[in-house]
Design a protein around this nucleic acid. Sequence first.
DNA 1: GTGGTCTAGACCACA
DNA 2: GTGGTCTAGACCACG
Lengths: 126, 126, 126, 126
Amino acid sequence: MTEESLWYPNVRIDPSRPLYEQFCEQMRADIARGALQLGARLPSVRDLAAWLRVNPNTVMRTYQELERGKLLVTHRGQGTFVTDDARIVEESKRDIARQAVAELRARAASIGLTTEQLWLLGQGEG
Amino acid sequence: MTEESLWYPNVRIDPSRPLYEQFCEQMRADIARGALQLGARLPSVRDLAAWLRVNPNTVMRTYQELERGKLLVTHRGQGTFVTDDARIVEESKRDIARQAVAELRARAASIGLTTEQLWLLGQGEG
Amino acid sequence: MTEESLWYPNVRIDPSRPLYEQFCEQMRADIARGALQLGARLPSVRDLAAWLRVNPNTVMRTYQELERGKLLVTHRGQGTFVTDDARIVEESKRDIARQAVAELRARAASIGLTTEQLWLLGQGEG
Amino acid sequence: MTEESLWYPNVRIDPSRPLYEQFCEQMRADIARGALQLGARLPSVRDLAAWLRVNPNTVMRTYQELERGKLLVTHRGQGTFVTDDARIVEESKRDIARQAVAELRARAASIGLTTEQLWLLGQGEG
DNA sequence: GTGGTCTAGACCACA
DNA sequence: GTGGTCTAGACCACG
């Protein structure tokens, strides 16, 4: 329980959104960024829950969600690990980027701007 | 309601998110884009509810939400109108843009990329 | 329709409160202040409604409300007039003052302050 | 709800004003006064509704209203709490005071008195 | 258990 | 006719 403190105190929790969702997002980003390395062992559900001071169910759900996306794998009796398949991590990273770009474009279109116009406007520029 | 709704049939409803929230988003965009003009009268709560096939309370909540943001005003007994203050609309538009840009930047940072790198990656480019 | 313009353009209408209520308040104050003098003739309901660009019912209700408080009197066929009884006006003025003071005291008590403390705090002083 | 409500039996309900509005006012004052302490957990929506003998939606609306003003925060699955940020409470208190003072001044001006004159008159003094 | 959303429908004040 | 409030009760996601 020392290494996983990576991302706890840095996270700003938004009480209006599901906790597990925010944890997923954070962990996905940590893996994409390489802060959680390929094959790294994660703390147990109970330990992480205690550390984060949240309900173990919340952590469980986070792990399960990421397992569904193949980013995490659980070896029974050994614990939960980051995947050791670099392609999966790369694909996840690309997905995050794709979604972010798509989102920006959709927003621009919705208010009748090109992405360039939105970009300028969003920086405090008209 | 006599005129056909600007935006209903075009909207894809995401059943996993609150209806009123999606309606708000849509209306904010419509106002920012100018599809709903300054001072325009909106359909009555009941009419729009019937048109959207939702409960009047859901529409009312949408209107009230936007009223709090000053984008709409309601005149007692007359109905609900788009604000006639262009500055408010401009500010709202800018807020949308700012938020979109901030979001993109945050995502880029979270996965350890510059915004340019994320942009390229998100378009299917490495 | 020239003299009654006394109080129209100066009034900031709050669309979230009943119009007739705001008109009553304004007229009561105008009478208390002497801007509407004892015995003064008021515009007809229709004229004032046209001038204010509101529904005649709204003006009617305003007049009726003030008649109930004896501040206005209607002489059939002649129109509506401010009372010519100075005592009534004085009493109305005092009522306004009493209510304002009572309100301030109640507010102070509700947040656990003396009226003096509230007064200082409310001016931007701690 | 296990503890008795701080404020219910003391409140005089004015049937001519929205319930949720009166509840908000009361709670704002209770928080400003310190009767509801920083970080205190509020009764659940259902419990308070049962206690007040109103519909849960009415209580929820009250909580949400105060949440928008940052005085309350709700932690998912845990309940609703008074903010633990003393500055927000202080600011709220100051707002109440400011509004009360501004109101008194406006009233005085509207009837052509100084605030001192209004104060004297309002206490039953000429 | 918690809050949150939505529906259905009644009732009211205002214009 | 308009919006606004309130009730009753169902259903859901979250922790």
